[in-house]
Write a protein that binds this DNA or RNA. Structure first.
Lengths: 163, 163
DNA sequence: CGGAATCCGCCACGATACTG
DNA sequence: CAGTATCGTGGCGGATTCCG
């Protein structure tokens, strides 16, 4: 329809109380909705797998461990509707359907890829951070329980003295 | 713990039947889980908002339209646990808690940012693709209904002739 | 103000069965 | 093989209440 470079009716009004250069976070903003689709659990995997090649339905199903055929269908339909994936039906028996990225989808692939790469690259740091956090929380819980016990003991003493 | 550049116990064995250079998509792979967190609906917004500045709990709440305080709390806790966000409590009354990206979180911010930028930049194309898709599907439904009606009419004729 | 804890509705998703 | 259709449920997330 158009070249997609114009900013169009972006939701960038109201909320002028803080920095206007802040991108929009309003609930009805379309960017939010698209972001949800694109950053979806299954969408990420599908897009990442369709890197410069086409795959059949069953191939995708096999490569993505744990996905149900229903979710794969739904995900592919959404991506097709958004113009990110192209669906090609070969009228043969048995039926054969190929999926591949559109040019638009290809531009998204790079971004998705960098997200995946980041995750792979930092998974050790994250695992370490989680372990450290859990340890810290556990330790705080310990001391909290101790102090509670001490307060309890003190309270009992006071009560005993009064009586 | 370490510099995070080593690839460590990546889940890259088994499934040697196709290209091994394919990154892992197995359900139990840790990358999958981290990806889900990082690409989460609310996490994206929080990380994007904490660009080189710290924000208070209520500030984040106000800026992210539609988030409940529960989900903001949960999201922030997860990000803190993953070492992406730092939480700073100021012991004053009324309580004041600041959130900011850690160095690790800052490296993620760039990637998130590019995802958001991509979405902003292509939202018109996507909207157009959706409209085209919906139109196409609607048209196919029309013809399908017509053909069904024709078959129905033909069947009635045949039945009438038989009787 | 910044949570934690509890309750609960609802729908996203999986499992299953059936078609072209 | 590549779906659609239907049903059942687990858990995500909203609303509410209470606390430091």
């Amino acid at each position: 329809m158009d070249d997609g470079t114009q900013h169009a009716p972006l939701c960038t009004d109201s909320d002028g109380d803080y920095d206007v250069l802040q991108w929009d976070t309003r609930e009805d903003c379309e960017v939010r909705q698209i972001l949800d689709r694109v950053a979806d659990k299954w969408s990420l995997l599908v897009i990442a797998l369709l890197d410069r090649r086409s795959l059949r339905f069953t191939e995708l199903r096999r490569k993505i461990d744990g996905i149900s055929q229903r979710m794969l269908t739904v995900t592919l339909r959404q991506l097709e509707r958004d113009g990110i994936v192209r669906r090609t039906v070969h009228p043969v028996v048995p039926p054969r359907v190929d999926y591949e990225l559109t040019p638009l989808g290809a531009t998204l692939h790079d971004t998705i890829r960098s997200l995946v790469t980041w995750t792979e690259r930092h998974q050790n740091e994250i695992a370490a951070a989680r372990a450290a956090y859990d340890t810290r929380v556990e330790a705080e819980k310990e001391t909290a329980d101790q102090e509670a016990a001490e307060r309890d003991a003190l309270a009992r003493e006071v009560l005993a003295g009064r009586r």
